[in-house]
């Protein structure tokens, strides 16, 4: 649950302009899909939202407050891969987030707190259909199961914003439909604002309440890095309904 405002945002690496003059107003509980060619600043934009990069100029506000300068529990992330912890089982991967929250020093829960955390993790595992696989390690799961676990892991702390960086890019097309159902269900239940980068135009129009297209407005063939990308199309598709829309 968070609105995002971006005003006159520039991101430069030395003389290399990645994003130029980006302006955006994203409402609470929107599902924003981001498309665009490679190297058009989509990932840089996401990294700024995460707090891994800071804007060179301009404002980047979440709920009216400046963006924190490092990743935190209010913004969840699902990467394309590598974001599960290989040394923990499915259940332990989910519990970890709750253990971080509940035990600052030992990062482990015991007794009643542990039972409560297990209950919460179990219901989420049921929701993503991984309860039967709870004792397996990530390396023993298929790509689709790994992404479902990664999504569950990202929402268990109930972030206000969920960032998805091509989450289904490496999956078989057959699985993607199930994943769409899952993400829409979680979006409706947990009431977060979602930003999702995708290469799949169809997916972006199906899922999003708003599609952003990143592209370069100006282009200098002699110095391609002189001009950065910005949002060239900002298409509101569906009104942001309240209460939450049910999954199609």
């Amino acid at each position: 649950m968070a609105s995002v405002s971006v005003r006159h945002l520039w991101k430069e690496y030395g003389s290399h302009v990645v994003i130029e003059n980006l302006n955006l107003e994203i409402l609470d509980h929107e599902f924003v899909t981001i498309v665009g060619a490679s190297g058009c600043g989509k990932t840089t934009f996401l990294r700024m939202l995460l707090g891994m990069e800071s804007p060179t100029r301009g404002e980047f506000l979440i709920d009216g407050k400046p963006l924190p300068s490092e990743p935190g529990a209010d913004r969840g992330i699902v990467f394309q891969r590598y974001s599960l912890f290989p040394h923990l089982t499915v259940m332990q991967n989910l519990l970890l987030a709750l253990e971080f929250a509940g035990a600052p020093f030992s990062a482990r829960l015991f007794g009643k707190a542990k039972r409560e955390a297990l209950e919460k993790a179990k219901s989420l595992l049921d929701a993503v259909g991984l309860y039967e696989s709870r004792d397996r390690y990530p390396a023993q799961l298929s790509g689709g199961m790994q992404q479902r676990l990664s999504i569950a892991q990202s929402v268990i702390r109930e972030p206000r914003i969920l960032l998805l960086d091509e989450p289904f890019g490496a999956l078989d097309p057959g699985i993607t439909a199930d994943m769409h159902q899952l993400i829409l269900k979680l979006w409706a239940e947990h009431r977060m604002t979602i930003f999702m980068i995708t290469h799949d135009l169809k997916e972006s129009f199906e899922l999003g309440t708003r599609v952003l297209v990143f592209d370069k407005v100006r282009h200098d063939p002699q110095a391609p890095e002189r001009f950065g990308a910005t949002v060239t199309y900002n298409l509101p598709l569906k009104p942001v309904r309240d209460p939450a829309p049910s999954a199609p």
């Binding site: 990743p71 992330i77 974001s83 971080f100 892991q153």
Partner: peptide, 22 residues
């Protein structure tokens, strides 16, 4: 993978917790 470190931070982990559990 840096993805793991970032993921842990988005799950609210401190430096100590990341060292201990990740």
């Amino acid at each position: 993978p840096s993805e793991q470190m970032i993921k842990a931070q988005t799950l609210g982990a401190s430096t100590w917790q990341i060292i201990l559990r990740v």
